[in-house]
Simulated scan of single mutants.
Amino acid sequence: MVSSGVGLFPTEPVQAMREYVHLAESLGYEHAWIGDSQNIWRESSVTMGAAAVGTSRIVLGTGVTNAVTRHRSLLASTWATLAEFTGGRVALGIGTGDSSLRTMGLNPLKLAELEHAVAELRALLRGESVRESHSGQEFRLSYLSEPVQVPIYLAASAPKILKLAGRIADGVIVLVGTAPEFVSSALATIEAGARESGRQLSDLHIVLWTPTAIQDDSTAAKDLVRAHVSRVVIRPLPAPVDPALEPVIERIRQGYDYYQHMDPEAHHAGMVPDQLVDLFALAGTPEECQARLKQIADLGVDQVAIVPFAPRAQGRARTIQTFAEIAGR
């Protein structure tokens, strides 16, 4: 059975984010993935620590962090501490870096650099020493008395990182849309990577990251997710799209503003046509979303993690609640 997760960007005060996580736990969600982009959102580690208080089951993860603004000594210590505090209810979601870097004019990590960072994080969490790349000094987490088990999830959309994730990660946060052909293509690429390390697709936990808006008015729902869809299509896609959409995608890539990253009112959201929304989001009436969810459930993912979007005055709780209802029917 496909489980449910919720991706939450900390665009509201910590108390509000904590309430969303507690609601998700009460509704049976398995994971709460907290966005990490220090220039546009509130601090992820503070948000996760606050959200952990009063919960007992839900797994807390980043959706996602990076190893540039977060030095690996800091990442390892953050996750060792959070794992200790929650009794192991953690999942470290990491990627090459996106808005957290782009808003400062920095470039994402190369895939080889990301792979090296993951290897060093695992070594630190085992209590081993690694060498700092600039100073040459070895360092470790001196307070660990035993290895800490923290599953590492790679965020992936383009084919090369999907394959890397299949080879090295414990789980994959897949951002490729909701169209069956895109999801199936991504899973095949992950599986090819898994085989390189002697594993199968079933050895990894596959999370489908899904911008979601559920409203009585289908058009209003689609309007809410256009900005997130634009973020998906600025990256290389896992499968070809209709050639007629390629000029539209190129205009979105040229006009994307990282300081309006995932903001439903971003100017680049207006460039996104309904055809792209239908390919890359879960947006529409409850009945429409339920039908697409049934398609996704048959494709082989382990979890659908919604990124809930709603009118500002409404808040995200209603979408979190409604998705739980349609997923459980």
Rank of each mutant, 00 (worst) to 15 (best):
D170E: 12
A156H: 03
A310T: 10
G127D: 05
V2T: 12
Q314I: 11
G270K: 11
R70A: 00
H71F: 11
K110E: 14
P273I: 01
T69F: 08
S157N: 13
A32L: 05
L164R: 02
I94M: 02
G177D: 01
R329A: 12
L92T: 10
A244N: 11
T219H: 14
R316Q: 15
V90Y: 02
S202A: 14
P211Q: 03
N107G: 12
Q303P: 01
E30I: 05
Q254N: 13
R140I: 01
S44W: 08
R167V: 01
L23E: 10
V172N: 02
A291Q: 10
G49N: 05
S37N: 13
G87P: 09
G88A: 00
T219D: 12
T11Q: 14
T219F: 11
D274Q: 08
P264A: 05
S45E: 05
A186G: 04
Q200S: 15
H116A: 13
R18K: 14
I161C: 03
A123M: 11
F85E: 12
E115N: 02
H268E: 06
M1K: 13
S145A: 13
D263H: 07
F9V: 10
D263E: 11
T96G: 09
A91W: 07
E265K: 15
A192P: 01
N107C: 11
G328N: 13
D298K: 15
L92S: 01
H116Y: 11
A317P: 09
W79V: 08
T62F: 04
G284L: 02
V232W: 09
Y20K: 14
G300R: 02
K294N: 14
M104Y: 14
L208I: 03
T319N: 09
Y256A: 11
V21D: 03
R70C: 07
R226C: 06
G35S: 04
L124H: 07
S45Y: 15
I168F: 10
D263W: 03
T285N: 09
I214Y: 05
R140N: 10
A244Q: 14
S157R: 10
D263L: 07
S157Y: 05
Q215E: 14
H261P: 05
I94V: 15
N39K: 12
A80M: 05
L60H: 00
Q149H: 15
V118D: 05
E19N: 12
G93H: 04
V301K: 08
P13V: 03
R72K: 15
S99C: 04
I252T: 02
D98C: 06
T55V: 03
A283K: 04
R231M: 13
L82S: 00
